[in-house]
């Protein structure tokens, strides 16, 4: 088996007296979809934030391609090719899609003007339109503010932004929670296509049907610890629920 491209070992994180993560582990192999599941408060979002550099961990190890790394900021994670689609999408809704895609990574104008901080808006717009087309994310008006888009279209912008930049891993925190049936199917198809292009996806979801539909592996968190791992095909919905609620104990299994 290939070695993991991203690995989290024995991660601990407390907020005051609340232990959000204690001994959580996760490994992501090249070109796979891993589902990260667990009950509310199990630590899924905290683990995602730790691995995307939003929060700093108290204890534990994060390894990229087997080498230990420290993520102090989201940029640190990004520089290792790790992108995140946050549950709230983290879009600046008054900006247009291209500005959102390139926010913080703007293309400078060539020459002296670029050094002064001038942006090449045309290049950013052109490149965004091209990448959105490749990903099959079609928007009627690519120049209008994100605020004028529907919920599903905004989701498309947030997902596309992550996919455009991700080299290794994309975390998706509840990408389908707010979507209808058809839009959910589209996001799941997009996840598969990303995986087929060699970028791994970590899917955080409450929806057992979604998880079973796209995941190659499933990792279960409970009370901040990793309590179970399933391979595709081994997992049945009942087992997953049992692992999430604690009626099935299999630490270190699979």
């Amino acid at each position: 088996m290939a070695s993991p491209i991203l690995q989290a070992r024995d991660i601990h994180k407390s907020y005051g007296y609340i232990r959000s993560l204690q001994d959580a582990s996760l490994e992501v192999f090249p070109g796979e979809v891993v589902a990260l599941i667990g009950d509310n408060g199990a630590g899924k979002s905290t683990l995602t934030k730790a691995l995307s550099g939003v929060i700093r961990i108290d204890k534990g190890e994060i390894l990229v391609d087997g080498k230990p790394v420290t993520f102090a900021t989201p940029q640190d994670a990004r520089e290792h090719g790790i992108e995140t689609v946050y549950q709230d999408l983290a879009l600046a809704v008054d900006l247009n899609p291209a500005e959102n895609v390139y926010l913080g990574r703007e293309i400078p104008r060539p020459g002296f003007l670029g050094k002064l901080g001038f942006m090449d808006r045309k290049a950013m717009q052109r490149e965004t339109e091209r990448r959105f087309r490749d990903l099959g994310v079609n928007l009627k008006d690519m120049r209008s503010a994100v605020a004028n888009l529907s919920g599903g279209q905004r989701q498309g912008v947030a997902v596309a932004r992550a996919l455009i930049w991700a080299k290794r891993v994309v975390f998706m925190d509840e990408p389908t929670a707010a979507l209808g049936v058809a839009q959910t199917r589209n996001v799941l198809n997009l996840i598969r296509r990303v995986r087929d292009q060699g970028v791994s996806v970590v899917l955080i979801s409450h929806s057992m049907p979604d998880v079973l539909a796209v995941s190659d592996r499933i990792v279960v968190l409970r009370h901040g610890s990793t309590v179970a791992r399933f391979q595709k095909g081994d997992a049945k919905s009942d087992d997953l629920v049992a692992a999430m609620t604690g009626s099935l104990q299999m630490e270190g299994a699979a």
Binding site: A92, L95, E99, L103, G104, E106, G117
Partner: peptide
């Protein structure tokens, strides 16, 4: 309206958390 500084100003007013996560 033409520089990164300006774009970041709009982004912060629009969604400070998103701006933070975008590395601003």
């Amino acid at each position: 309206h033409r520089t990164r500084f300006g774009l970041h100003t709009f982004a912060i007013g629009s969604n400070p958390q998103a701006a933070e996560r975008a590395g601003i």
